[in-house]
């Protein structure tokens, strides 16, 4: 069907249909106004501070941490599939002769035409951006921030480097390295669930923060060693007039590192392959 066909009777029908849909959706939103139930969310608010001063980190990476694990997978798969569309991992059945893969052309980056002044300012800018990304990921549990943001920031530094200096830029990340980084990131996130699983059979139970093992009725127990290994490196002290209070974000900072690796790997790979195309040859070979 061509777009031109939408001008006739079909167009009018589609228009009427869209008006009905909009009316329905608007009507329902108006009805919802003032009738929103809070449900379970106050309970999350009550619990989140026990782990990390940044409540968001507690929600996203611990209380609903497994959701975020699969979300991370969406980013990973997004990168794998985008790169697959450009040629990495296209498969062929051995026997029958089939159509050749669609040839891919790369974008035309011309770093030679970049003004020299940009080249002077590019390197410090990239260094600053990368340090900012590292700051964000290390402060995931204590301040606003996290692995995803760090990944986006660092991969944007990588894109800046590619735009100014071309393929051999200061952040000279190869395709194998990026694939490995993404895979290690997601696998780290996944394996962070293992200690809690082994101790309590709850996957991704936060053994470092260990909020529940002393509660009556909790199945399983967390050994002291796990609490020390995963809890102590990230323990925070809140010094108040009433006394000093301790909390630990436990596995949340490690998860954030994994998330950051995953996002750097995924986005970097997309940038690299969309700019220069994919070939199964080793780097350096022509």
């Amino acid at each position: 069907m061509e777009m031109g066909e939408l001008k006739g009777a079909r167009g009018i029908v589609a228009l009427v249909a869209l008006v009905i849909i909009f009316a329905g959706v608007l009507f329902s939103f108006l009805q919802l106004n003032g009738n929103v139930a809070r449900g379970i969310s106050p309970e999350y608010n009550r619990l989140a501070y026990l782990e990390a001063p940044n409540n968001l980190a507690s929600w996203v990476y611990d209380l609903r941490g497994f959701d975020t694990f699969i979300e991370t997978g969406v980013i990973y798969v997004g990168a794998v599939v985008s790169v697959l569309a450009l040629g990495r991992g296209i498969v062929k059945v051995k026997g029958p002769r089939e159509e050749e893969p669609v040839p891919q052309t790369s974008f035309d980056f011309k770093p030679d035409t970049v003004p020299i002044i940009l080249k002077y300012f590019g390197l410090p800018a990239i260094m600053l951006i990368v340090s900012y990304g590292l700051l964000i990921v290390t402060g995931a549990a204590t301040s606003g921030g996290g692995g995803f943001q760090c990944g986006v920031i660092i991969s944007s530094a990588y894109l800046l480097g590619m735009a100014i200096y071309g393929k051999s830029n200061p952040l000279n990340l190869g395709k194998k390295f990026l694939i490995g980084l993404g895979s290690i990131g997601w696998a780290t996130y996944g394996l962070c669930g293992l200690p809690g699983y082994l101790a309590t059979h709850y996957w991704q139970y936060n053994v470092g923060a260990d909020l529940w093992s002393s509660y009556p009725g909790f199945p399983g127990a967390v050994p002291e060693i796990l609490r020390t290994v995963f809890g102590d490196p990230f323990r925070l002290a809140l010094v108040l007039k009433e006394g000093t209070f301790y909390s630990s974000a436990g596995i949340v900072p490690i998860i954030n590192l994994g998330e950051a690796f995953n996002v750097i790997g995924a986005l970097g790979l997309i940038f690299l392959v969309f700019a220069y195309g994919w070939s199964d040859r080793k780097e350096g070979e022509t």
Binding site: M1, L6, R10, A14, A17, L18, I21, G24, F27
Partner: peptide, 24 residues
Amino acid sequence: NASDLNQVLFWVVIYFAAIIAVTL
């Protein structure tokens, strides 16, 4: 029944309008 995006989109819009209209 062609797998043309515009075509499919058109029918989805019609379906969805019908669902909304009938149920609401």
